[in-house]
């Protein structure tokens, strides 16, 4: 049996996924990227391998992706997150026409064809608005864990609009709303709306077609997903572990490369 690995070194988290030659996912690991991306990648791969009981030597091909892909010494090839998220989402949900990946520093909208290849894509500019980072800063402002933000947003009956898309200005806006004793859930809902509108605007430039799959850590935020679904008018595919979709796609592309040869 031969095996393939994909490693996604993101700005906040690093994932490794192991698949076999039938493209079955055997296991994965999620690590914090921290200050040393190479170490995080090494650790993620080590953990994933030991979970599935496969040795490094049995790995036929390794593809690295994510912003830290360039520096991964043991990768056979480096492929951008765009292609990897596309492939991963296609594999999990074959009817996917559009992938929305929201990570720590980037948000991307990717349109793909029936083979999981990229047709068009767009990314946020150099700005944290519409990213996981924005939500983390805001979670910090409220002193709640980022994992709980989504639930709080869902609880709100009403929504307080946040007018600024800039993280710094939005934060001061939030601070003054807190000072005015405005309901926390409603402010949080407004913040979620700000993220979704921002990414929604980006999505319009490439167009949304087919079923929508969300990937990246922010897909775990049910508040964000709910607002996207509200905009779309139908439901979105969310895998039980959306954070690994990039690494899964990388592993699939590693396998595909060999099969093409």
């Amino acid at each position: 049996m031969t095996y393939f690995a994909g490693i996604d070194v993101g700005s906040l988290s690093t994932e490794a996924v192991i698949i076999d030659e039938d493209a079955t996912m055997l296991g994965y690991s999620i690590q914090e990227t921290g200050a040393d991306p190479v170490r995080a990648a090494t650790e993620a791969l080590r953990e994933a391998l030991s979970l599935v009981g496969v040795s490094r030597e049995q790995l036929h091909h390794v593809v690295a992706t994510g912003y830290g892909r360039i520096n991964i010494p043991f990768a056979d090839r480096k492929i951008t997150e765009i292609s990897c998220h596309a492939m991963g989402a296609h594999h999990l949900f074959p009817d996917t026409g559009t992938v929305i990946d929201i990570g720590g520093q980037d948000s991307k909208v990717i349109r793909i064809n029936a083979e999981g290849r990229v047709l068009d894509f767009t990314m946020n500019d150099k700005c944290a608005a519409g990213t996981g980072r924005f939500l983390e800063v805001m979670a910090g402002t409220f002193g709640v864990p980022v994992q709980e933000l989504g639930e709080l947003s869902l609880k709100a009956q009403k929504e307080i609009p946040i007018s600024s898309v800039c993280t710094v200005f939005a934060e001061s806006e939030v601070i003054s709303l807190i000072a005015q004793n405005r309901p926390r859930e409603q402010i949080i809902r407004g913040l979620h709306r700000a993220v979704v509108s921002r990414v929604w605007g980006m999505a319009q430039s490439v167009g949304i077609e087919g079923a929508v799959t969300m990937s990246g850590g922010v897909a775990k935020n049910r508040g964000i997903v709910a607002l996207f679904e509200e905009n779309l008018g139908h439901s979105i595919h969310i895998h039980s572990e959306p954070q690994i979709i990039g690494a899964l796609g990388a592993a699939l592309l590693a396998r595909g490369e060999i099969h093409q040869k």
Partner: peptide, 18 residues
């Protein structure tokens, strides 16, 4: 000052992969 090397590179590489 308005240019981000990393983001531009990722975009260009992804486009070329496409």
């Amino acid at each position: 000052r308005t240019y981000s090397e990393e983001q531009a590179r990722t975009r260009i590489e992804a486009f070329l992969e496409g």
